[in-house]
Design a protein around this nucleic acid. Structure first.
Length: 586
DNA sequence: GCCGTTTTCGGCCCGACTGTTTTCAGTCG
């Protein structure tokens, strides 16, 4: 049993204990331990075998015993009994807004409700409103919540969130009564999937700002509205929250609502260690609750808050409590890549396969946008659904690209197209083109589009692709489609190792539906010396904008410009592309 | 259930909003 599964069991125990009405701190202890185990560097089996579980912060005697049983036998009777004692429907009910463990327990104990369907029926029959602690409004709210849950999974792509957030942000910033304004939350941290959008505003006229926020066109419903905060539902079912504070409080509110929750907990603890108290209103020289501005340390920006807690400024993307505190304390945070560092794209399609634009159109647009190079990497013949190219058409395409490049040179333009392919990795790990064909291209991406069922087989295929001297990049390495499809089973660690061994680059596919390889794996890839290629997988010219997502997610993976190959200028990129092929000749 | 430079017992991050109360519990972020 690996650490992910152990963490899963522990965190589920935490949830079940909450529903049982156990001591909430006990439940939190399980959640904390689950998190600690998830971020372990070593295999959990090793820690168990060496009797070193106690070294994990948050794992005491009780949990050491349970984890040992779980790892050694693959089962945990305590967990199984607990799970059997609580109907699965109660856990599901936690996803209904306005319902938490206490209310769910009350509904179960007093009305015998065990499923969402029973809950819906009880609400419609008016039974819920009669319970102590419930009323007509809470009953209506539960029904609304069930409906909402049905209509929208309350999780959205980062790109969708940015799309709705940016016009609102611009509108708020343009107001005379708004001093500062930003998007906070998981959107600011560039999480690939988000739950809601948070706006933080500093203003002397909170009422006016909130009134504007809840009445602007596009607001579908208002779920809460107070004197300092409000929540609305936007098209697509995205919830947006606004929080209005004074300008003195602004940096504290921005930091607090940017999170993550785990990051904030450490920040608070650091404040406590220094005899201070941190919340969304300030960093106070006080052990007790206060809002006295005279007791607040002066901080005009988030940087000042970090400095006051003995830390370098931590960029929002890194605020996940995944090593940023140690690095910020030791002045060892990397200088993260920025969008402007990216000079071109190595994974794009044209109308020769399933893209929209012609090669000439692509050259014209990307040149005007200021890129230095843009690779044409259309699908290979096995992707017939995508009008993949066979060797003959590929050869014609290379000729066409040469002609376009010549005309660019005649105009004195620096921009160049690169000829390449996104070649399919086939069943036996072979590629959809022979090596002789690949040798005639400047750049080769190998992608698995039809995965096998087994992890071993998929891993074998990708490792074999990486070992091919003509393959530069492994494309969208896990094949996930966010909110739609899980990654195919693959031992990604083995693929990373194979890339490190062979000098193959891994793609950070920055299509908003993929963002694959996942940011959580980049620090590992980087530590092994694997370079990253950020590719929008563009099928139409405007999708060049997706590079912005790529840069953000690369930042989240702790990557610098040096770690990303498409920050190289064209001459250096060509040299880098030649390295692996020359290796193959040795 | 965990943890400790005031502590081995008594804390555990903290505040706004909502709805049901008539001073507060539960939920949420």
């Amino acid at each position: 049993m690996d650490k992910d599964r152990v963490a899963e069991v522990l965190s589920e125990i935490g949830v079940l204990l909450e529903l049982k009405g156990e001591n909430p701190f006990k439940s939190r202890a399980y959640a904390n331990a689950a998190r600690a185990i998830q971020t372990l560097e070593e295999p959990i089996e090793k820690l168990v075998a060496e009797n070193r579980l106690g070294e994990i912060k948050g794992v005491g005697e009780g949990l050491q015993e349970k984890i040992t049983i779980l790892v050694q036998t693959g089962r945990l009777p305590y967990y199984e009994e607990l799970k059997a004692s609580i109907p699965a429907g109660l856990v599901e009910m936690l996803s209904i807004p306005s319902l938490g463990p206490k209310k769910i327990k009350a509904l179960h104990d007093r009305l015998g409700i065990s499923t969402i369907e029973e809950l819906e029926a009880a609400c419609k029959a008016g039974k819920v409103a009669g319970l102590d602690g419930f009323g007509e409004k809470s009953q209506a709210k539960i029904l609304e919540g069930i409906e909402y849950r049905r209509q929208y999974a309350s999780r959205h792509l980062l790109s969708a969130a940015l799309e709705v957030a940016e016009p609102i942000l611009a509108e708020l910033r343009a107001r005379k009564d708004v001093t500062r304004c930003d998007v906070a939350g998981s959107v600011r941290r560039y999480k690939e999937v988000i739950g809601d959008v948070d706006f933080i505003v500093s203003s002397e006229d909170a009422d006016a700002v909130i009134e504007c926020f809840v009445t602007r066109p596009g607001v579908m419903s208002v779920s809460a509205k107070g004197s300092t905060k409000a929540s609305v539902i936007l098209p697509g079912g995205i919830q947006a929250d606004i929080r209005v504070v004074s300008d003195r409080e602004y940096p504290f509110a921005l930091a607090y609502f940017t999170g993550s929750k785990e990051h904030n907990i450490v920040m608070r603890q650091r404040a406590i260690q220094r005899g201070l108290r941190l919340n969304e209103y300030g960093l106070f020289r006080s052990q007790v609750e206060t809002r006295d501005p005279n007791l607040c340390l002066p901080c005009a920006t988030e940087s000042d808050i970090y400095a006051a807690l003995g830390l370098d400024y931590i960029p929002p993307e890194l605020r996940e409590d995944k090593g940023e505190f140690a690095a910020a304390e030791g002045h060892a945070l990397p200088r993260l890549i920025e969008l402007k560092d990216i000079r071109g794209s190595l994974h794009n399609h044209s109308n020769w396969s399933d893209g929209l634009n012609s090669i000439a159109q692509i050259a014209s647009t990307m040149s005007k946008r200021g890129f230095e190079y843009w690779a044409i990497t259309d699908h290979s013949k096995s992707s017939f659904q995508a009008n993949g190219l066979d060797a003959k058409r590929l050869k014609q395409q290379v000729e066409e690209i040469k002609r376009v490049n010549e005309s660019l040179a005649e105009k004195g333009l620096k921009f160049r197209l690169l000829c390449g392919t996104e070649v399919d990795v086939l069943r036996d790990g072979k590629l959809d083109f022979d090596d002789e064909v690949l040798a005639g291209l400047e750049i080769v991406i190998a992608s698995l589009h039809v995965p096998a069922g087994s992890e071993a087989e998929n891993t074998r295929r990708l490792v074999k692709a990486a070992e091919n001297p003509f393959v530069h990049i492994i494309g969208h390495p896990t094949g996930r489609l966010l909110l739609e499809r899980e990654p195919y089973p693959v031992n990604i660690h083995a693929v990373i190792d194979a890339c490190a061994e062979t000098g193959t680059w891994l793609e950070l596919n920055c299509s908003p539906y993929r963002l694959d390889l996942d940011w959580r794996l980049w620090p590992q890839a980087k530590s092994k010396g694997v370079k990253c290629a950020i590719g929008p997988d563009a099928h139409r010219n405007e999708q060049a904008d997706w590079l912005r997502l790529g840069a953000g997610v690369a930042r989240k993976g702790w990557l610098t410009a040096d770690d990303v190959v498409n920050t190289l200028d064209l001459a250096s990129l060509r040299k880098a592309l030649a390295v692996k092929r020359n290796r193959g000749k040795r």
